[in-house]
Design a protein around this nucleic acid. Structure first.
Lengths: 231, 231
DNA sequence: TAAAAACGTGTATATACTACGCAAATATAG
DNA sequence: CTATATTTGCGTAGTATATACACGTTTTTA
């Protein structure tokens, strides 16, 4: 323990995924100031002296994009590349969140010049190592989808089963059998069908479904696993 | 981004698990100096200015315990409790490793007064939030055991099938059916039986088995999953 | 009024998991 | 020297889960 004059900065970054119209997006900003202000980047910034890491992410997200998220999970801490930030040694703790963009209004506040949802497969070269952070976020998401009902966060409160199907198809990048998928999903018991119908442009009208959060938590507490095989 | 005078220290800690004689251990040290030098603690310390996080853990482990580990994985970054270290604001990136204690020689070097393997269910009150870090490490281990062949790291190069069984029983804390476990394990194809036998005190002599790392990596590359159900 | 689009179910087959029982090879006790 | 205890190394039958696959229903549009 020799680092008497340690001068490493600590930052947080948020990988916020949104899903809309069969497409997966990440929340990105363009900063007003800084060396990398030409590049798009993840929302984030330095942690304050008296601030919990999780509070720092929430604050930065709110400040830079106007987005509030209740559930953020730690993704990874990036601190092996000494010069990931060309100015100083900065270690960044990356967080991960899932939201339904339709429930949010983006506002480029304070530090941010622009804010935008950027489609997953149209992400440009980003500032710092943010492309790598997102890559890891996508990996986590693909993994998570196999054992957690991510639809809770990514879909509207009431949704069509076809939307849930599409969500899974989009994330894992392949088609799942519609009938088997529905059977499996419904077998868990935390999805309830509502009495409402959605009339679409064409085809038979579909029932609207909803996640039963209480039931999900109960089942989770019982230690039940919600694994879904997506070979 | 207002933290112009950020003065947060960054540290690393290592949760190193060892397995021997049907028991699971964690590597702990007692420090010579510092405010918490009466308490046992995880090996670790402050990161140096020009040092990758992973290098910091390896260095601290070597310095404090003489242990060298090739594979360390990030566990979690502890930085929500502002006063987890009563002196300064310190954020710690915790790492996770699995080793076979019989392959190592512990030496309490430099900063450490004592080093010891401490049995998982006999861990005392530790310094800082290290009990919490270990708790999370155990959780990770229990999880990991279901989809990764942790025996690679925790067992001797050549081992008995009963040792592998005991390892799993110990980690998950319950008995698995011996015959089904063997069938499943062998079906993966990365365990090979050697020609050697181990004569034991009693009972039929048992074959020695070995992990085939090359084959494991090949299968892993093919994206094959090694899930083992441990209800 | 026919065709297209999307919804909602059911069944047969294959695969995987679970629960068991028994013989073989050794050490030890009598 | 023989019987018993102990640990190893299979094998099989029954159950549950996953996969593959087809058709009628309800709507819009041409």
């Amino acid at each position: 323990m020799s680092a008497h004059h340690q001068n490493i900065k600590i930052a947080v970054d948020a990988v916020v995924f949104g899903y809309q119209k069969s497409k997966l997006y990440v929340l990105l900003i363009q900063q007003k100031f800084g060396s990398q202000n030409d590049y798009w980047a993840l929302p984030g910034g330095l942690v304050q002296e008296d601030e919990a890491l999780i509070e720092a992410v929430k604050r930065e997200l709110k400040e830079e994009t106007n987005v509030s998220v209740n559930y953020l999970e730690q993704l990874y801490t990036f601190g092996d590349d000494i010069s990931r930030d060309p100015r100083n040694r900065v270690i960044s703790v990356a967080y991960f969140a899932l939201v339904d963009p339709s429930k949010l209004t983006l506002i480029a506040d304070t530090d941010a010049e622009k804010v935008s949802w950027v489609e997953i497969d149209k992400i440009p070269n980003l500032a710092f190592d943010h492309n790598e952070i997102i890559r890891l976020g996508i990996e986590r998401l693909k993994n998570k989808v196999t054992y957690q009902p991510i639809g809770f966060d990514l879909l509207p409160t009431k949704f069509l089963f076809s939307q849930l199907e599409n969500l899974y198809n989009t994330i894992i990048g392949k088609e799942i059998d519609r009938r088997n998928f529905r059977k499996k999903m419904m077998s868990f018991g935390f999805i309830t069908e509502t009495e409402e119908y959605a009339t679409k442009k064409t085809g038979r009208p579909a029932k609207l479904y909803a996640f039963n959060t209480a039931e999900y938590k109960r089942l989770e507490k019982e230690g039940i696993h919600f694994e879904i095989k997506l070979v």
